[in-house]
């Protein structure tokens, strides 16, 4: 009996490991190619795990003309502003709808649900004209403002806040606290898991955002990572080794960050699956 359990566990591990290697393959390929100097003329064939002509040359070439630090800085500013904004706006709106009573509440709730059905891609052209008109074209605010009110985040917040007992709030109301204070000091601390989940999700959605920044930005000094690398690819597409070095610096730090906070990411993602 014990032997069969051991066997079962062992074979499950083997299957998972094989799948894991397949998942890691693109990353391994990227790393290995990025260290091959000849890869700037043609891809190494047959593929080599550690290239025969191992060198850091591609990284030197790439760092000279690819402002990866600047792009990280830009992505960081934009994404953290979005995440901060989403958390604040979703908390406020979520609290009002979950716990407040006012005329039009149901209508506003429906409106928020409806915005979830609008794919961002279809409003890009009008949004672009709007940004030109209000002079926000080619600014970071153009990337931040349109995604700061997020229907899905508000919805998740409402669902979560509804589960907080009203008695807690009533007690505070009797003590004379105003609603903002109640939300800030009593409700939000209880919402820690959902806040963390929303932070993670909005980070993921916005860090890799591509189409809108591609259209809304012009100044290379404001480019985010996906746009930066897409433009770099236009110039260096034939140089596989250098491109792979650029790809490496564009994703590895994010992957490391993910590994460090993976527990929160997993919890956040799981929460969304269970809440709807």
């Amino acid at each position: 009996m014990r032997k069969s359990i051991l066997l079962k566990q062992g074979s499950m591990g083997a299957v998972l490991a094989v799948i894991g290697v397949i998942f890691l393959l693109p990353f391994i390929y990227m790393l290995s190619t990025s260290f091959s100097r000849q890869a700037n003329i043609a891809l190494p064939y047959p593929p080599q795990l550690i290239p025969e002509d191992f060198s850091f040359f591609n990284y030197i070439v790439m760092l000279k003309s690819f402002s990866v630090g600047l792009y990280y800085f830009n992505s960081g500013i934009v994404t953290s502003s979005v995440v901060g904004g989403v958390l604040l706006i979703s908390s406020l709106a979520g609290y009002a709808i979950a716990k407040g009573s006012f005329r039009g509440k149901y209508f506003i709730f429906l409106l928020i649900l409806a915005t979830m059905m609008v794919p961002f891609q279809i409003i890009i052209v009008p949004l672009y004209i709007l940004m030109l008109k209000i002079k926000l074209y080619d600014t970071r605010l153009a990337l931040i403002l349109p995604v700061m009110a997020n229907g899905y985040s508000i919805f998740l917040m409402i669902q979560y806040m509804k589960s907080i007992p009203d008695e807690l709030l009533d007690a505070a109301r009797i003590d004379g606290c105003n609603e903002f204070k109640i939300m800030w000091q009593i409700v939000l601390p209880l919402c820690k898991p959902v806040l963390a989940a929303l932070a993670v999700l909005n980070f993921l959605w916005n860090w890799n955002s591509f189409l809108w920044p591609l259209i809304a930005l012009e100044d290379m000094n404001k480019f985010t990572i996906p746009i930066g690398i897409a433009f770099y690819q236009q110039q260096f597409t034939a140089y596989y080794g250098t491109m792979m070095a650029a790809a490496t610096v564009a994703i590895i730090p994010v992957l490391i960050l993910f590994v460090l906070v993976q527990r929160y990411v997993v919890r956040g993602i799981a929460l969304t699956g269970l809440k709807l």
């Binding site: 706006i89 009008p126 939300m183």
Partner: peptide, 22 residues
């Protein structure tokens, strides 16, 4: 309560509804 929902509503109107109508 309207102050609580105002930021969300404002952004929705300006950056989703208005472009959608447009």
């Amino acid at each position: 309560w309207y102050l609580f929902v105002a930021p969300a509503l404002g952004l929705f109107l300006l950056f989703i509804l208005y472009p959608l109508v447009w």
